[in-house]
C-alpha cells in the first residue's frame, strides 16, 4: 500500500512512514539541490538530521531536512 507525493509535478510513490528523502532515493532521485558557491549537487549524506545537506522545499516551506520529514499524501516537493 503506497500513496503519492509530487516531485516537481511528477508523482513519486511513498511507503507510509518513509521520509521525503527515502522516497526520493527509492525513486532514483539522489540529488535535489545545488550548493551556493560551487553549484554542486547534494542529496542525503548523514541521513539522520545532522548534516543539512538534504535541504528541500516541501509544500512551499523551505528549508526542510528531507531525511527527517515524513512524507504525507499529496506533499508537493520542489527541487532546486
Amino acid at each position: 500500500m503506497t500513496f503519492d507525493i509530487t516531485v516537481d509535478g511528477r508523482p513519486v510513490p511513498v511507503v507510509p512512514g518513509q521520509t521525503i528523502g527515502a522516497a526520493l532515493h527509492a525513486a532514483g532521485v539522489r540529488s535535489w539541490r545545488t550548493t551556493r558557491f560551487g553549484g554542486r549537487p547534494r542529496g542525503l549524506f548523514c541521513g539522520i538530521g545532522v548534516c543539512f545537506d538534504c535541504l528541500i522545499s516541501v509544500n512551499g516551506r523551505a528549508p526542510e531536512r528531507a531525511c527527517l520529514l515524513e512524507a504525507a499524501p499529496g506533499d508537493e516537493v520542489t527541487t532546486a
Binding site: 539522489r30 540529488s31 547534494r42 542529496g43 549524506f45 548523514c46 541521513g47 539522520i48 548534516c51 531525511c67
Partner: peptide
C-alpha cells in the same frame, strides 16, 4: 557526490 552516504545514513 550524491550517492556517498555515511554508514549510519
Amino acid at each position: 557526490l550524491p550517492g556517498v552516504l555515511t554508514a549510519g545514513g
